[in-house]
């Protein structure tokens, strides 16, 4: 029973992480139609921000995470202005530019802090929580933090004029102008919010994961699998897909192994892509 409880707890944590990293990517794709491969590097910059502020400079953990959200959000904004704006309407150009940005950010981090061993980020809340199984509070806070962040995003998109304009942009850029928002502004806002979510994921995960310049690689594929299955640009679908893949990965890894889990995830994505290319949740249901 304890084993099952632990597995459910593990699945919950994995799903929270997938949701946090994938929702931002989905938002950017939905509004800008850009396959942003640098989203993993934005996540990495968030983790490095927390490493510097929390682990090295002893700032309070949540203040460090807040700064990480802001820093990566601004990084996204600058990227949109300097790079992605030039690729609007051309998915291939956007993709190539984002790959270039991957290398730029990796090299920048390597130049500033070097490579070598991972940057150790201690847990701010190392106490162990016994709930279904055992986890640290540090790990557990990922769940409420994800609920709060995604809930806030959802509320913003549904209840603010500017948020509704952003949602409309995902459907039809011209429709957004009915809300008085130019496609350029929509793109900038989507990039800020999407990147900020990656910053939040990196910041919250820094004490739980290995912080190194290449940590973005490990998450970007999973994030793409999740948004493809959820329906690219579809926030609700992305959430459902995060839960499905979080638990699927956990269960297969526990009973078989993590290599098979990766294989099955990709297979599920391919099958769904073949039979339901619009994703789990159709756009009309968003």
């Amino acid at each position: 029973m304890q084993f099952i409880g632990q597995m459910i707890l593990n699945g919950l944590m994995t799903s929270s992480f997938y949701a946090l990293i994938a929702v931002g990517l989905s938002l950017v794709f939905g509004v800008m139609h850009i396959v942003n491969f640098a989203h993993g590097e934005f996540y990495m910059v968030g983790a490095y921000t927390v490493w510097v502020l929390f682990a090295l400079l002893d700032w309070p953990f949540f203040v460090a995470v807040g700064v990480a959200i802001l820093v990566v959000g601004i990084l996204g904004l600058v990227s949109e202005k300097l790079i992605f704006r030039r690729a609007r309407g051309n998915v291939l150009n956007g993709f190539i530019m984002s790959v270039g940005l991957v290398f730029i950010l990796q090299v920048a981090v390597v130049e500033i802090w070097g490579v070598g061993k991972m940057k150790p980020v201690p847990a701010a809340y190392p106490q162990i929580l016994h709930f279904m199984g055992a986890t640290t509070w540090q790990r557990f806070i990922l769940f409420p933090a994800t609920v709060i962040l995604l809930g806030s995003l959802w509320y913003f998109l549904g209840n603010f004029k500017i948020g509704r304009a952003l949602r409309a942009s995902a459907e039809d850029p011209e429709a957004a102008s009915l809300y008085g928002m130019s496609p350029r502004k929509s793109a900038a806002l989507a990039m800020f919010l999407g990147s900020a979510m990656a910053g939040a994921a990196g910041g919250l995960m820094a004490p739980i994961m290995s912080v190194h310049p290449y940590m973005g690689h490990a998450v970007i594929w999973t994030a793409f699998v999740v948004i493809i299955v959820g329906g690219a640009g579809n926030i609700k679908g992305t959430l459902y897909a995060s839960i499905i893949f979080g638990f699927l990965t956990t269960i297969i890894t526990t009973f078989l192994d993590s290599t098979i889990a990766n294989l099955v995830n990709t297979l599920v994505m391919l099958v769904l892509l073949a039979i339901r290319p619009e994703g789990l949740v159709a756009h009309a249901e968003k």
């Binding site: 084993f3 632990q6 597995m7 707890l9 593990n10 944590m13 994995t14 992480f17 199984g133 986890t135 790990r139 994961m209 490990a218 998450v219 594929w221 999973t222 990965t249 956990t250 269960i251 890894t253 526990t254 009973f255 078989l256 192994d257 993590s258 290599t259 889990a261 990766n262």
Partner: peptide
């Protein structure tokens, strides 16, 4: 003695399986 994938980011399920 199951090897884990190099892409692994979360070790909770692997350790759960090993400790079982």
């Amino acid at each position: 003695s199951k090897p884990f994938s190099l892409e692994t980011t979360d070790f909770a399920p692997i350790v759960t399986a090993a400790l079982a």
